[in-house]
Every structure is written in structure tokens, then in C-alpha cells.
Simulated scan of single mutants.
Amino acid sequence: MTVQPPSFFELSQENDFEETMAGPVTELWHQRQEGMFQGSNHTNIGWAALTGNNPDKAIIVVNGRIESYWKYQELFYDLVRQGYDVFALDHRGQGVSDRLAEDTELGHVGHFDDYVSDLDTFIESVVKPKGYQQLFMLGHSMGGTITSLYLARHPGTIERAVLSAPMHGININKWMRPIASPLARVMEQLQGQPSYAPGQVPYYPKPFGSNPLTQSKVRYQWFRDLYERKPELKIGGPSARWVWQGLAAAKRCISEAGNISTPVLLLQAGEDTIIDNAAHQQFHQAMVQANRDCQFKVIEGARHELLFEADTYRTPALASAFEHFRKAEIPDA
């Protein structure tokens, strides 16, 4: 007899958040494995894993800009309770990985494709040797960009993927869109060394009331408290180079979408002000026109951080993700 995993309604909830985080989540987090590998240009990339839960299937979580796997302890707890081993990495220039600029709070990257190469190295050197029959991927925001490009360039590795508010475009004022990338290139040349893009600043904890990320006060406060307890995780605004590299990568996601053979579920946050939601339609259309499997679901009323949102939005987002993954369940022997 197959043991059924917890129902979607047994996902971690805001009403019990503090108790859950202090109890079972902390207990599980203490069981994590952590390590480093060398990514492109000999950059040290940090990773974490929670294994021993399922020998057959694992989920690789690909987080967004300014994030760290430390932020996703609640999500990892929910993934483990749903019956998956979990792997995650911190991208170059953020989290516990090597920083790429003298200002350690500057969000910088040399080449966006380095993120994709690092993910490939992580999967080949850390995840695959475990011998799982099925690998799944959950990419959020910038991690959705990285996931999209990885899927397009490495077919056959990932069974199914979920893109949470993926950065297939950045929400920029219409009049700025044609000049954003060339302006960022010019600024990079004028600066001479990695520096903040115009209007960007080092890390600061934006008050909950004015934050564009989530409507969950308890989750938002936990995230901000985490970065105060571990200030080495703090990342502020992006560099000028990151801006034009990110814009170019977002466009490549759409142009390469037809090469993705992995079934994809794209989750859009209906009230997202960070990502250009119109670009999701372009990505979805590109996959469909290439006869690829891309499901599209809008979580109405949700802000950008679907995996960190209020239960009203987070629960249906995760329920849809698990439903998508379970379409590839290994049949009982």
C-alpha cells in the first residue's frame, strides 16, 4: 500500500507560523546537508539539501535575486512533507556564495549564463550522483529565468518544472523600456567598476506596509529578521551590468522557449509589480506554438512572492505545483 502524503490543506499556515518555524521547521533544518562547489570562473557556490525522505524523487529549488536557501526553510518543510527530497543552491554573488563586487551588498553578475552553468554543474556533480529516478524543478523570479534557460538547453534531465512569477520580463515604465538596456550599458562603462544601477541602493528593510512582495506580515517579518540575524545574506539593488544582462536573459527565455521539452506550469502573481506579466503570455505562446506542454495559472490578487505570500495565495499556488509534479508520479511496483 502506498502511503499518501499530507493533503494540500496541511501545508504550513500563517496561524501556526511561529510555532511551526520554531518547532518542526527548525528540527528539519538542523538535518540539512551543506556544501560548496566551484562554478564558472572558479566561483564558490553554496548549496543545501534535505535528503533521506524519498530515494526516487527530488525537487531542485532555484531561488530569486537577493535570496538565499536560508529564506526557504518553510517551503523546504512543506516539500519534504509532500514526499520529496530537496536541493537548493545560492547563486553567485548572493547568499552564502562568493560575492562578485567589492561592495558585498551589490547585486552583480558578469554573465547571466553563468547562473545557468552553475545550476548545471550543481545538478551534475551534487544531485545526479544520488541516483533519483525523477528530478523536478521549482524556479522563482530570477530563478525562473535561470530555470527556463536551463530547461531549454538541457532537455531530458527534469521531469516537470514549475515557474513561480518567473522573470521573463522586468516591470519597467513604457517610456523607459526601449532605452533601459542601452542606458544600463552606458552607465556600466561610465562607472568603470561594478556599481549600483540608477535609482538602486544597498540593502535596507522596507517596511511591511510599503513592500511589493507579499501580503503575509508574519512571513515578511521572519524574512527580514533572518537577514538581521545573518547579515552576510543581505543584498541590495542590482548593478548596471546586472540590469542589461537580466533584460537580455529574459528575452532569451522567450526566444528559446520552443526548445523546452519538459512539461511546465507557469504561475503568475496577479498583482505583481516586479515582473512584466505580459512577458509570461509571450513565453507561454512560444511554448504552445512549438507544441510544448506549458500550463498557465494566474493566482489572482497575489503579489510577487507566491511562495512567501499569505495563505490565501500561497496555498493554491503550491497545490497547483504539487498537482503538476504528481502527473509524473512513478507507478507503484
Rank of each mutant, 00 (worst) to 15 (best):
F8R: 08
F9N: 01
E10H: 09
E10D: 15
S12P: 10
N15S: 12
N15A: 08
D16Y: 10
D16I: 11
F17M: 13
T20N: 06
G23R: 14
E27S: 15
W29K: 07
W29P: 01
H30W: 11
E34R: 09
G35D: 09
F37D: 03
S40G: 06
T43R: 04
I45K: 03
A49V: 13
D56A: 06
K57V: 02
Q73H: 09
R81Q: 04
Y84N: 04
D85F: 11
G93T: 07
G93W: 07
V96A: 04
S97R: 01
D98C: 08
L100P: 11
E102Q: 02
E102V: 05
H108W: 12
H108M: 10
H108Q: 09
H111K: 14
F112I: 13
D120Q: 12
E124W: 03
S125I: 10
K130N: 04
G131I: 10
M137N: 14
H140K: 15
S141D: 02
S141P: 03
G144M: 04
L151T: 02
I158A: 04
I158Y: 00
M167Y: 03
N173C: 10
M176I: 15
A180M: 11
S181F: 07
P182G: 13
A184L: 04
A184F: 00
A184N: 09
Q189F: 13
L190T: 02
P194V: 09
P194F: 07
A197H: 08
Q200R: 13
Q200Y: 01
V201C: 08
Y203M: 14
Y203D: 11
G209H: 03
G209E: 06
S210D: 06
N211E: 12
Y220R: 02
F223L: 08
D225M: 07
L226C: 07
Y227L: 11
P231I: 08
L233V: 15
K234I: 09
P238G: 09
S239C: 09
W242H: 08
W242V: 08
W242D: 03
G246P: 02
A248W: 08
A250M: 13
I254Q: 04
G258R: 00
L265F: 02
L267D: 05
Q268A: 05
E271A: 04
E271G: 11
D272F: 07
I275C: 02
H280I: 09
Q281W: 02
H284T: 13
A286M: 09
M287T: 05
A290H: 03
K297W: 01
G301N: 09
G301A: 06
A302V: 05
A302F: 06
L306A: 01
L307A: 02
L307R: 01
E309S: 13
A310F: 00
D311E: 13
Y313K: 14
P316V: 01
P316Q: 01
A319Q: 05
H324Q: 10
A328G: 03
A328Y: 03
A328M: 04
P331E: 06
P331R: 14
